[in-house]
Simulated assay, not measured.
Amino acid sequence: MKSLLIEVINHFRSTFRWSVMVMIFMVMTAFIYFNYRLDFEDGMVDTLPFNYRVPAMFLFHLVPYLLTVLIIAPFIENKSWYKTKGFWLRIFIGFGLLALDRSIQFRELLSSYIDIADWSFLYSFSKRILSLITLVFPLYIISLFFEKSIPGRGYGLIVKRFDVRPYLILLSLAGIGIVIGGFFRDIQDYYPRYLELGGTAFARRHEIPDWLNVLVYELAYGTDFISVEMFFRGFLIYGFVRYFGPYVVFPMIATYCFLHFGKPMTEAISSLFGGYILGVISLKSKTIWGGVLIHVGIAWLMEFIGYLFRTI
């Protein structure tokens, strides 16, 4: 645990620049305000037809990434990053896969086969599993064949030894913040996802024991964070550290925050800080599994706190 904290502190000290911090703060504050004021992602981007939604989602995540790159550009050693074909190739392939993964909704394809009452629950369940195919698998194959010199093999997915103890301690500390966050109304209205998506009603309609339905859903919910960590703490860290050095964490957390724009604002803001810590840990440990463990643990704790507040 102590070594993880030292790594985070040392990274912050080595990359701290007032101009960088102030600019990122101003840009992200404006983006967060704009999104929640206009309901931009949920009300606009997500409602587009598939052929428009894919390019819109591509730009949705790419714009904050590149803006943050421009903010850190004066301080990175590699001044010719924008002239490198490999950089733009990684940008278009990676963000293209993310846009495709986030744009697939099945609604048009499966609406005639699935009862409308079951749609929200089944969609959420299947979408999380599908991300392993549409995002994790392609990135893994790309890393094995074209990224043999990166620090984290398989974008951090392949690791020989992994000590879980410091991450469990960090997760227990994060649990304190989760309990505090549970008192915010927007968090209470969003969690647990199982109930909000109609999981109990689905189990009743299909005569499935509710405990079994909860178990299957929460396991699927957990797998979703393998995809998240693979892209944000794997691909965006190991794939671009050659261009930005230790500053690679900052553009990652900007676009990672956008991933949370469909969630409560409290969670979107906290993702900047959590994303930074997980990014530094991934950069130093050369694996994403610490982030997966923490991320899944936090998600399940949020679900548990959500259940708890519903019963109080």
Rank of each mutant, 00 (worst) to 15 (best):
I141D: 04
I169K: 08
L48M: 15
V214H: 09
I72N: 12
P74S: 05
M252K: 15
L301E: 04
L197S: 03
T255N: 15
G222Q: 01
S172Q: 12
V216M: 12
L173K: 05
G86T: 10
I169T: 09
M21V: 14
L272S: 09
E41V: 00
P246Q: 07
M1L: 08
R193Q: 10
G43T: 00
L130T: 07
E303R: 04
V292P: 09
L272I: 07
S282Q: 07
M1A: 09
G245M: 05
M26W: 02
G279E: 13
L170A: 13
Q188P: 03
L195M: 08
W18G: 15
P55G: 07
M252C: 14
I141N: 07
F309W: 15
P251Y: 13
E7T: 04
V69A: 13
L283M: 01
E7H: 10
F273V: 12
R242Y: 04
F258I: 00
L122V: 02
F184M: 05
E196K: 13
I76P: 00
I6W: 11
Y243Q: 11
F50C: 09
G198L: 06
W289P: 01
H206W: 01
S120G: 05
S227P: 01
F75L: 07
V241A: 11
I180D: 02
R204L: 09
G291I: 02
P138A: 12
M302R: 06
L67T: 03
M28Y: 01
L97E: 02
F250T: 15
L97V: 12
T200R: 14
L62K: 06
S3W: 13
R205S: 06
S285D: 15
G94Q: 01
I133W: 11
F235W: 07
T134D: 15
D118Q: 11
M230F: 08
Q105N: 15
A56P: 00
G234M: 13
F225P: 08
R153D: 11
I32D: 03
F31Q: 03
L122C: 02
T255A: 13
W289N: 00
T255K: 08
F304N: 14
A73S: 15
F75I: 02
G275V: 05
F244M: 07
E77R: 15
Y36Q: 00
L62G: 04
G222A: 06
P246L: 10
L110D: 02
G182W: 12
P264R: 06
Y247W: 10
L59T: 10
G177Y: 05
P55W: 08
F12C: 05
I32M: 02
Y191P: 00
R165M: 10
Y65A: 12
M28C: 06
A99I: 01
W81N: 04
L110K: 11
I180L: 14
F309G: 05
S149F: 14
L293E: 07
V214E: 03
I150V: 11
Y190C: 06
E207A: 06
A117D: 06
M1E: 06
I133L: 14
I93N: 09
V63N: 12
N51P: 02
C257H: 03
G239W: 09
C257V: 10
W81T: 00
S270K: 08
L98F: 01
F25Q: 09
C257G: 06
F202V: 00
L283Q: 08
S172H: 08
D101G: 07
I277M: 11
Y167D: 00
Y276V: 11
H61Y: 14
G274T: 14
Y256Q: 14
V179T: 08
L259V: 14
L195S: 05
F145Q: 08
R193Y: 07
V136R: 13
